[in-house]
Amino acid sequence: MTTSQGTRRRVGDSPALLGLIGLVCFGGLLEVLPRAGVLPAEYFPPTSTIVRALIDELDRGGFWRAVAGTVTTWLIGLAIAVVAGIVLGIVIGSIPALRLATASTVEFLRPIPSVALLPLAIVLFSAPVRSILLLVVYASFWQVLIQVLHGVADVDPVARETAASYRLGRWRQARYLVWPTTLPYAMTGIRLAAAVALVLTITGELLIGGTKGIGEEIAVAQSSIAVPSMYALIIVAGLIGLIANLATRRAERLVLAWHPSVRRELPL
């Protein structure tokens, strides 16, 4: 950006620069404090040590298999939850009687903490990946379903009556009326579900064991007290989360670029 004549921009005015300064300070602080003995270095290794451990990890074949494993489980779980959530959401939302009949059940099942199902998942499935998928799908399905239900309910009643008066069939109504209204809500649901699904994927790996995933690697690092690599792996988990966030936000903007409606997240 060119600065125009006479207007000097102060350092404090650029958010991006300030953010970078913040990151550098944060890293610097975590380098200095353990070295100065303020924080115990055996539990809080200095930043440089963690970075070195991270670089070592990047060289290891097992690490990349773990990343691939986590991402695969996450994407499969997310895909199942999204498809199920959208299909069921539109069907339930479009039929008032069904909506009324399922409301209480949805309200009851949704708040059940997904990790509560963990012991169940372990005894029901012998393959750990399936147990993890059960948790992932259960937790993220509700995010999509609830948003889609709200989306279908948001269809303009006047538009609905117009469509009915022109004798648009059920399929056409769904295609041209319900779906466009629901899409922004569904995208919000997918964004929320992606975050939840990732958390549960890594949690499942951490708790169940026997999978190739970042969570498993962290558990192994913990039990062998490899503190720097544990932090390095946690940073990797954070980075995957960050990329997932950015990607879903990006996708949301791309898909909805043409969409005229004002979108807002529902205060649920």
């Binding site: 990732l198 958390v199 890594i202 951490l206 970042i214 962290i218 940073i235 988990a237 966030n245």
Partner: peptide, 9 residues
């Protein structure tokens, strides 16, 4: 973005 459960260990 860090899944909170990984902080438990």
């Amino acid at each position: 973005a860090i899944p909170p459960p990984v902080l438990v260990p």
